[in-house]
């Protein structure tokens, strides 16, 4: 293990909150991977005897259904466990997509500057002129509802952050000596862009990626909640909340637990992201 990596893990262990965040993230990943084995029931299994059963510790609850059942008799706990898959899927796909496109766009804009840069930045300005969720909604309505389309919509919305960040980093590093040195020995453009400059810009991108992971989960849940993300009966957390809306005043648990799952996951990622930022890039703390 390199010196840097050692320092990284040491700092991570010292930052208790960030470490706890990481543990929870790993736990959620594990749930998502092993949902079929961990969850007591199948996500779509219906017990026609037990509609809207409260959690097991409440009066009228059943020990068979720890967190109670939903309006059509499905086990809430199992649905939440299965639901972790969709949030993880959204987070991973959105962040990797926007990282890839954002890095290419940002490096090109920052490296070439001039007209190319101007055009790319104006495109980003345009995207940023729309409130993010509204833009995602409209894109999702064009593409049609569904989880994959939601992922695409959210990617588009988050892209400007990555492009702007990469561009700023690249422009900063272009003034450094190591860059000039490599350029002088006649390295190719592609090499200069992606091998010389890019690796030096990674830290802030990783931090931004982590924070956008949680935003992606929130946005996807919001789209699901508004009916333009994952469609019922998919046990996506936001969609589950939309289903449960009419029972908001009668069965608190169907409203509470899916939201709690979102909150805990997002919070874990945010705490971890904050910790990463402190470790990797102290100067970023300002923004």
């Amino acid at each position: 293990m390199g010196e840097g990596a050692k320092f990284f893990f040491k700092s991570l262990f010292q930052n208790k909150a960030a470490f706890l965040g990481l543990v929870i993230i790993i736990f959620v990943f594990a749930l998502a991977l092993g949902a079929d084995f961990i969850a007591p029931y199948d996500a779509s299994y219906q017990d026609r005897e037990s509609f809207l059963l409260p959690p097991s510790w409440e009066e009228g609850g059943s020990s068979k259904y720890l967190l109670g059942t939903d309006p059509i008799g499905r086990d809430l706990l199992s649905r939440i466990i299965h639901g972790s898959r969709y949030s993880i899927f959204i987070g991973v796909s959105v962040v990797s997509l926007s990282l890839i496109i954002g890095i290419i766009g940002g490096v090109i804009a920052g490296y070439f500057g001039g007209m190319i840069d101007f055009v790319i930045m104006r495109l980003m300005d345009i995207l940023l002129a729309f409130p993010s969720l509204l833009l995602a909604l409209v894109i999702a309505s064009i593409l049609g509802p569904g989880l994959v389309n939601a992922a695409i919509a959210i990617t588009v919305v988050q892209l400007p952050h990555f492009i702007r960040l990469t561009r700023a980093e690249v422009m900063q590093h272009k003034t450094k000596e190591y860059y000039t040195a490599t350029k002088v020995i006649g390295a190719s453009k592609i090499r200069l862009m992606f091998i010389t400059l890019l690796p030096n810009c990674f830290s802030p991108l990783i931090v931004q990626g982590t924070l956008n992971f949680s935003n992606a989960i929130l946005d996807a849940a919001a789209l699901g909640f508004l009916g333009l993300g994952a469609q019922p009966p998919t046990p996506e957390w936001g969609t589950m909340l939309a289903d449960a809306r009419e029972f908001v005043l009668s069965a608190w648990w169907v409203v509470t637990f899916p939201g709690l799952a979102i909150l805990i996951t997002v919070m874990a990622i945010n705490v971890f992201g904050d910790g990463l930022r402190d470790i990797l890039d102290p100067k970023l703390r300002k923004s």
Partner: peptide, 18 residues
């Protein structure tokens, strides 16, 4: 503030209603 920051606000609204 971290809780607030991580809050799905549609859920937060529902909780307030509850």
């Amino acid at each position: 503030s971290l809780i607030g920051y991580s809050m799905p606000i549609f859920w937060w609204g529902l909780l307030m209603i509850v």
